[in-house]
Amino acid sequence: MAIHHVTAPVAGAAARTRPPEPFKERAARPPEPGPVRSGRPPEPFGNRAARPAGSRAALLVLADGRFPAGGHAHSGGAEPAVKTGRVRDAATLEEFCRGRLHTAGLTAAALAAAAAAGLDPLVLDEAADARTPAPALRAAARRLGRQMMRAARAAWPSPELDALAAARPRGAHQPVVLGLAARAAGLAPLDAAYASAYEAVSGPATATVRLLSLDPFDATAVLAHLAVDLDQVAGTAAEAAARAVREGAEALPAPSAPLLDITAEQHATWPVRLFAS
């Protein structure tokens, strides 16, 4: 696996590892008519034949903040962070998002990539439970997973989605469903990791605009600043998923953020709140 070390152009940031570059591979691929792509470049791991080749643009649909899967009602921990003053402006929002991205975000992105790579979604669902110690966050993940399932089955009908919906009628963990949706859309594990990782920061950023009346341009700039981190997390997640294909789900990373877990439980007891989590 080719990994290029580059120095990030962010002041004060350490050199970051860049993920494998599917964009270049894909850009080099000549456009083909029709839905079947034959000249697809070699993929990092197997299980590709079982699913349809899709359009890369499906990633835009999946990662769109307007994808109707319930995310708008969740703050990703931003609501309690705003209340305690830990998030109070664009700078603290950025550090919050960076921390969330490299912890809960990476965990979710790796689960999503693994589901897209064809790992057993029920094994991944169990791995997600073990990686989500806060019951409020397990409940939110399953609720969002069920909502994601509804949207995904409408957008990309697939027997694999049907099977998971039947096996987990109350909802599987959202990253697992997202990864399986990406797979149904013909997207690659890295694509699923990108969608999941981006969601880990776009949720809190959008919520903070509502909670703090933060300037939406500042919030968008925060997301733009996190692009290098997003590349890194998505790349790490996809590599881990490739390892998990060979070694099992335990090879997936499990980074965690103590304050997100603690404050999620506090938030769940609030009688009055704007966001579901």
Binding site: A73, R143, Q147
Partner: peptide, 21 residues
């Protein structure tokens, strides 16, 4: 009760998933 993330119109029109559930 459906929680709407400060946007009830989103929950009844644009993203109805929580309400359907």
């Amino acid at each position: 009760a459906v929680e709407t993330g400060a946007c009830p119109h989103t929950a009844i029109r644009d993203d109805i998933s929580a309400n359907l559930e």
